[in-house]
Nucleic acid binder design. Structure first.
Length: 477
RNA sequence: GGCGGCGUACCCAAGUGGUUAAGGGAGAGGUCUGCAAAACCUCCAUUCAGCGGUUCGAAUCCGCUCGCCGCCUCCA
C-alpha cells in the first residue's frame, strides 16, 4: 500500500507525508470564530479536517490534534483598530463577549456532532482568551529577537526585517510590493510599513476585552493566537497546519513570520488548505456577506444533516464545491443506501469473522484513493461499489470491511445497525410478531392494520421475504 | 494593477499523456414484490468552453479567445 500523500502549499506539490516523530503526528487546524453561527462553508472545512485526521489514523498514526477557537481579536475592518466581531455581537445582543462565545461554541459543537466530526477534547480544543499569557510570552520572545517594536498604538511585527523587501512570500508567492498593502485600508501611522501587523494592540479604551501586558493594557492581534497555542500544545515545529485557502496570503504568512521570528526554527512542515463551498451563483459563501446557509437549513428542508458529510466527499477538498439543496439530497440517497444495508444486515452476516476475499479489492481502492491527497470522491465510489457488489453477488460478508471504511466515512453504520437490531418495548415487538404471522397467513388486511398501529407508535416497518424489520421513525427537526 | 483557480452529460463531480472518459443523483425501460420500501439488470458524454499547436497518441502539455470565480481588507 502506498503511504499517505498530501498537497503541501509550501512546495505546491503532492508530497509523501513523513511526520517528524512517527507514529505521532502533530496537527493544528484553524478553528471557528465564534460571533455568528458556522455556515455550511465552514462546516465543509471541518469535515475536511475530520477526514484528514481519520485518514491519518487509518494509516496507523497517533494524531495529536489541536483546534483553536477564536473568541477575541477578529476585527470588523482594519486588522489593527476595527471593532472586535465578538464584541460587536455582544453589544448588539446585550451580552458579554464570553456569553456570546459560549453560545456559538455550544452551537458549533452540536453542528459537528450532527456531522460526526470528532473534535479534540479540551484543552486541545483551545480558546484564545484562555491563552493570553502564552501569547504575551511569545510576543516577548519576538521583541527580544528584534522582530517586534513597541509603539503607543501597539506592538508590531516588522515584516521587512524578517524576510527582506524583495523576497517572495513563502505561501502566497507574492512579493511585498505586489501586495498593495495599505492601498485600500487605513493603517496605524505608528507602523514602520503597511505590511507590519499587530502582535498586541494598545490604547483602545472602548474594547471590552483587555489584558495587562508588559506594554500596557490591551489585547492580542489576530495571528498570534495560533502560533502561541500551536507551540504550547504541539511544540515549536509541527507536522501539519490546515485552514481555508483564504488564510494563505495573510494569516498563515504572518503566522510563519512571527513563529519563526520567535524560535528560529521551521514552524510547519506541511501546510494544507481547503477550497470553498460556493453558492449556486458560483460565489463564495462567507460570513461577511450576510446571508449564508447553515446546517439547520438542511433539517428544515427535510434533509438528514449527515447527508452533508457525504455531499462533501463528492468533491476533492482542493476543489470548489457547488452547494444546492438538490445536490445534498443526492448525497442523502447514498446515505440511505449505506444505512439500509446496515439496518437490514442479519446477525449471522454481521458476525462473520472473515469477509469474503473479493472485498479486499474495494478496501484497497478506498485507502489508496484517500492516501492520494485525500481523493474522497474515488474513495466514496469504492465504498458504494463494495455494497453494490455485495447485493449483486448475494454475498453480504463485507461488514468488517465496511466498518473499517466507515472509520473514515464517519457515518456511524454500526450505530445504524443497532437501530433495527436493538431492544424495542415488548408491546412493539408483539405487534411486529403478530403482523409477521398475519403476513405468513396471507391475511394482508390484518397486516396493514398492524402496520398502521406500529406507525402510530412511531415505528417504521419494512418487509422482506422471511419477516420484517422495524425502526423508530426518523425525526426531522 | 498583482497573485491564484475554474469551465467534463440534465445536476453534483473524479480523471491531468496511452485499452471502452470513475462514481453518485435525476431520467427511461425491465426483474423481484400482497401492499409499502428497498435491491438488482439494461440504457443514458465518439466526447471533455472555443480555436490553433506539440505528439505516434491530449479532456490531460503549450498558445490565444470567450466565460466564471477567489485572494491582495475580517472571512474555512
Amino acid at each position: 500500500m502506498k503511504p499517505f500523500h498530501i498537497f503541501n502549499t509550501l512546495s505546491r506539490r503532492v508530497e509523501e507525508f513523513q511526520p517528524l516523530n512517527p507514529p505521532v503526528v502533530t496537527y493544528y487546524s484553524c478553528g471557528p470564530t465564534v460571533y455568528l453561527p458556522q455556515h455550511l462553508g465552514n462546516m465543509r472545512a471541518y469535515v475536511f479536517v475530520d477526514t484528514l485526521r481519520r485518514t491519518l489514523e487509518l494509516n496507523g498514526y497517533d494524531v495529536r490534534h489541536v483546534m483553536n477557537i477564536t473568541d477575541v481579536g477578529h476585527m470588523t475592518s482594519d486588522a489593527d483598530a476595527g471593532e472586535d466581531k465578538v464584541e460587536k455581537t455582544a453589544r448588539a445582543e446585550g451580552k458579554t463577549p464570553r456569553e456570546v462565545a459560549d453560545f456559538y461554541i455550544a452551537q458549533f459543537k452540536r453542528d459537528c456532532d450532527q456531522l460526526n466530526i470528532r473534535l479534540p477534547a479540551p484543552p486541545l480544543l483551545c480558546r484564545a482568551t484562555d491563552h493570553v499569557a502564552d501569547m504575551i510570552a511569545l510576543i516577548e520572545r519576538i521583541v527580544e529577537r528584534g522582530y517586534g517594536y513597541v509603539t503607543p498604538s501597539g506592538v508590531y511585527f516588522e515584516v521587512e526585517k524578517w524576510r527582506g523587501q524583495s523576497r517572495v512570500g513563502r505561501l502566497s508567492r507574492q512579493s511585498l510590493d505586489e501586495q498593495h498593502a495599505g492601498q485600500r485600508l487605513e493603517h496605524s501611522p505608528d507602523k514602520k510599513s503597511p505590511h507590519d501587523f499587530a502582535l498586541w494592540v494598545l490604547n483602545q479604551p472602548h474594547h471590552l476585552m483587555q489584558w495587562e501586558s508588559p506594554w500596557g493594557r490591551g489585547y492580542p492581534g489576530w495571528h498570534i493566537e495560533c502560533s502561541a497555542m500551536s507551540m504550547r500544545y504541539l511544540g515549536e515545529t509541527i507536522d501539519i497546519h490546515s485552514g481555508g485557502l483564504d488564510h494563505i496570503p495573510v494569516h498563515h504568512e504572518n503566522e510563519i513570520a512571527q513563529s519563526e521570528g520567535a524560535t528560529g526554527k521551521p514552524f510547519v512542515r506541511y501546510f494544507v488548505h481547503n477550497a470553498f463551498l460556493v453558492g449556486m451563483e458560483g460565489a463564495k459563501i462567507s460570513k461577511s456577506v450576510g446571508r449564508f446557509p447553515v446546517l439547520g437549513d438542511l433539517a428544515a428542508a427535510g434533509i438528514n444533516p449527515l447527508a452533508f458529510r457525504l455531499f462533501c466527499f463528492g468533491a476533492k477538498y482542493r476543489s470548489e464545491l457547488a452547494f444546492s439543496l438538490d445536490a445534498v439530497r443526492a448525497a442523502e440517497r447514498n446515505l440511505d443506501y449505506f444505512a439500509e444495508f446496515a439496518r437490514n444486515l442479519a446477525d449471522a452476516e454481521a458476525e462473520a469473522r472473515a469477509d469474503s476475499p473479493w472485498t479486499q479489492e474495494f478496501d484497497q481502492r478506498f485507502i489508496e484513493a484517500l492516501n492520494n491527497d485525500l481523493n474522497t470522491p474515488q474513495a466514496l465510489a469504492a465504498a458504494l461499489e463494495l455494497v453494490g457488489e455485495a447485493y449483486r453477488r448475494g454475498d453480504k460478508r463485507i461488514w468488517n470491511t465496511l466498518k473499517k471504511l466507515d472509520a473514515v466515512l464517519g457515518l456511524g453504520l454500526d450505530a445504524m445497525r443497532k437501530v433495527t437490531h436493538g431492544e424495542f418495548p415488548a408491546e412493539v415487538t408483539a405487534l411486529q410478531r403478530a403482523r409477521d404471522a398475519a403476513r405468513a397467513a396471507r391475511d394482508f388486511k390484518r397486516a396493514d392494520e398492524l402496520r398502521k398501529e406500529l406507525e402510530a407508535k412511531g415505528y417504521e416497518v419494512k418487509d422482506h421475504r422471511g419477516g420484517s424489520t422495524i425502526m423508530p421513525r426518523r425525526r426531522v427537526a
